[in-house]
Simulated scan of single mutants.
Amino acid sequence: MSLKVNKLTGGYSSIPVLKNETFDVKDGELVSLIGLNGSGKSTTINHIMGLMTPFSGTITVNGIQITDNIEKYKQQIAYIPEMPILYNELTLREHIETTIMAYNLDSDDAWKRAQKLLKIFRLDNKLDWFPSNFSKGMRQKVMIVCAFITDAKLFVIDEPFLGLDPLAVNDLLQLINEKKHEGASILMSTHVLDTAEKYCDRFVLINDGSVSYEGSMNEIQQHFNDLGHSLNKIYLALAKKDDNHE
């Protein structure tokens, strides 16, 4: 079941940025949210995370809306933002402990997962470091570790490859693949279309706050067969057409 966005209209103040958006992310599926800067990707994610209230429409995660049970809704979601959000006064160890408490995780099991992830991302000797000691890439890795120790049903990942070294990108993609096989759903916003094409099951193309097309790579290629065969070429051609129409 996982994520369902149905006829979502929303934005800032009284101005609609999103206009009747409808798409879903099924269990065990990686879906890429694609669009130019200003197309509505971040606003969509902010609504899913409960940071913004829709003007109309619904967002459900496994059948639960945030208005039904805010704690249960949010505990089903793990979020990795584009810009890492860490608490300056907490060490890496304390960030992990805070995550364990927030998600009501079994401490022993969660720390076993954490130790494995810390080793993968080469943070296992930095548990007593504060955020001020970390580079942007290392901060991003802290966010990844905290997200992937949870039992979240939905992972929302915003531009995860920016700031990560190639080895960390590969490690993250392996983690995403493992979570998919466990039945979790992943919504990923990215401009790295070559990587998205290789790893994502479906794509949601957003333009001016609306879903312009949704489908698998094969479906996109068939639908836009005159624009090229790669996701990058197809999307660039669509973006240029939209610019010409403005």
Rank of each mutant, 00 (worst) to 15 (best):
G137L: 02
N6A: 08
S107M: 12
E21Q: 15
L173T: 06
G50F: 12
Y87C: 05
A110T: 05
H223V: 05
E82V: 03
D165C: 05
M188P: 02
G28N: 06
G215Y: 06
F224Y: 15
K179W: 01
R139Q: 15
Y199Q: 13
A147L: 10
N62W: 05
K126H: 13
G38D: 04
N125M: 10
A152P: 12
Y199W: 09
I186F: 04
S212M: 13
S216G: 00
N218D: 15
S14D: 15
L127R: 00
K153M: 00
L193K: 08
S212A: 11
A184P: 00
K126R: 15
Y87R: 05
A78M: 07
L127S: 00
F224R: 03
I34M: 10
K153F: 00
Q174N: 15
T98S: 12
E219V: 03
V169Y: 01
H245A: 11
S212H: 10
L236E: 13
K116L: 14
A184W: 00
A102R: 09
L193I: 07
C200V: 05
I100H: 04
D242G: 08
E29M: 09
T190K: 08
E21T: 12
E159S: 03
K241E: 15
N125F: 08
S132Q: 13
L193Q: 07
Q140T: 12
D158Q: 05
V211G: 05
N46T: 04
N244G: 14
I66T: 02
A102Y: 13
Q222Y: 04
L18R: 09
A102T: 10
